[in-house]
Amino acid sequence: MPDRALLPDILAALPLPALAIDRNERIVAINDKAQSLVATGAVGRHFVTVLRQPTLVEAVENTLQDGKPRRAAFLAGDVGKELTFDVTLRMVEATGTLILSFQDITHEAEAGQMRRDFVANVSHELRTPLTALMGFIETLSGPAKDDPAARERFLNIMSGEAERMNRLVGDLLSLSRVEAEERIKPTTSVNLTDILTITLRNLNPLAVDNDVKLVAEFGTDPLPLRGDPDQLLQVFTNLVENAIKYGGKNNTVEIKTETSLRDPALRGPAMRVSVVDHGPGIDPVHLPRLTERFYRADSHRSRALGGTGLGLAIVKHILSRHRGRLKIMSELGKGACFKVILPLDGAEV
Rank of each mutant, 00 (worst) to 15 (best):
A243K: 10
A132T: 12
I137T: 14
H322R: 03
L223N: 07
A149L: 08
M158L: 02
H124G: 08
I198W: 12
T97F: 05
N121L: 12
V235T: 10
L332A: 09
A270P: 03
A94E: 15
L14P: 01
A72G: 07
A149C: 00
A150E: 13
D230T: 03
R71E: 15
Q35W: 09
T40G: 02
I341V: 14
R23P: 00
A76I: 08
P186I: 02
P69N: 00
A207E: 07
Y246M: 07
M1V: 12
H322P: 03
I30W: 01
E181M: 15
V92Q: 11
P205V: 03
A72I: 00
Q35C: 15
H300N: 13
A39F: 00
A42G: 13
R116V: 11
L89I: 01
L200G: 15
I137Q: 13
M91A: 12
M91P: 05
K245W: 05
Q65V: 05
K316A: 14
P343G: 12
V240D: 07
K316C: 09
R153F: 05
V190Y: 02
R115K: 05
L326H: 13
A150H: 09
P8V: 02
G281C: 07
I282L: 14
K145T: 11
V119K: 12
L11T: 06
T237H: 13
V38M: 04
R267T: 09
R45S: 11
T49H: 09
G77C: 00
D3L: 15
L326N: 11
P205M: 04
G309M: 08
V340D: 01
L155Y: 02
F338C: 02
T88I: 05
E138T: 11
N251E: 08
G96H: 04
K245T: 12
A5E: 14
L7W: 04
L37Q: 13
T187A: 12
D66H: 01
V212S: 07
G44M: 10
L225W: 01
H322F: 02
T49Y: 06
D32F: 05
I282N: 06
A12T: 13
S123R: 12
